[in-house]
């Protein structure tokens, strides 16, 4: 089994929300609410302002809390890719999965069923996901989790030479 995931670099994200749009366009036939959201936080006042943008969707957790929380066993984890998906025929739209999810990822669609990132289910693996492809600053990178961990370490160690807060979010919560 492989586990694919997202790597997100807050230092690179400029908050343009292109990833949100790319996600909506690519998944148009199955998406009725936003699956990817950019959370923005500002602190302080001019001229001392700091800001962070975090682009978040489902992280396809290793031991997915949403899957364990679902009373209908509607959420499954794919053996091949590690992607976590909702079966709309089983889902009753109770939103317990959202209560359990650390990233606030599952959203209730207009059909009253849970929807969330499918890791671009209909895109062949090995090419970039829609959000990753559009990101003008390469703040989102996807791949196998081992490769992302290496990539993250390289990035962090490179940055530690200049900066004490590397600030990356590695997208895959193992338990």
């Amino acid at each position: 089994m492989s586990q694919y995931g997202f790597y997100f670099d807050k230092e690179k994200c400029v908050g343009c929300r292109a990833c949100e749009i790319a996600c909506q366009i690519w998944n148009d036939s199955v998406q009725t609410v936003k699956w990817r959201n950019v959370a923005m936080t500002f602190e302080g006042s001019y001229p001392d302002v700091s800001n962070v943008n975090v682009s978040m969707a489902c992280m396809h957790c290793g031991d997915a809390p949403c899957k364990k929380a679902c009373p209908r066993q509607a959420i499954t984890k794919d053996d091949e890719t590690g992607r976590v998906t909702v079966n709309r025929e089983l889902c009753v739209g109770c939103m317990l999965c959202l209560w359990a999810c650390p990233f606030g990822a599952p959203q209730l669609g207009i059909h009253g069923r849970m929807e969330k990132c499918t890791f671009c289910e209909d895109r062949p693996m090995g090419i970039k996901r829609a959000c990753e492809e559009i990101c003008p600053t390469q703040a989102i990178v996807t791949g196998k989790i081992e490769d992302l961990a290496k990539f993250s370490k390289q990035n962090v160690s490179g940055r530690l030479l200049h900066d004490e807060s590397p600030g990356v979010l590695l997208g895959h919560e193992g338990n």
Binding site: A39, M40, T41, E43, N51, V52, V54, M56, L98, P102
Partner: peptide, 19 residues
């Protein structure tokens, strides 16, 4: 989960944590 409000708060907490 309050019509998405709870999800929004969870995401905000994560972004505040990274500030």
């Amino acid at each position: 989960t309050q019509n998405g409000e709870y999800a929004y708060q969870k995401r905000q907490r994560i972004s505040e944590g990274l500030l």
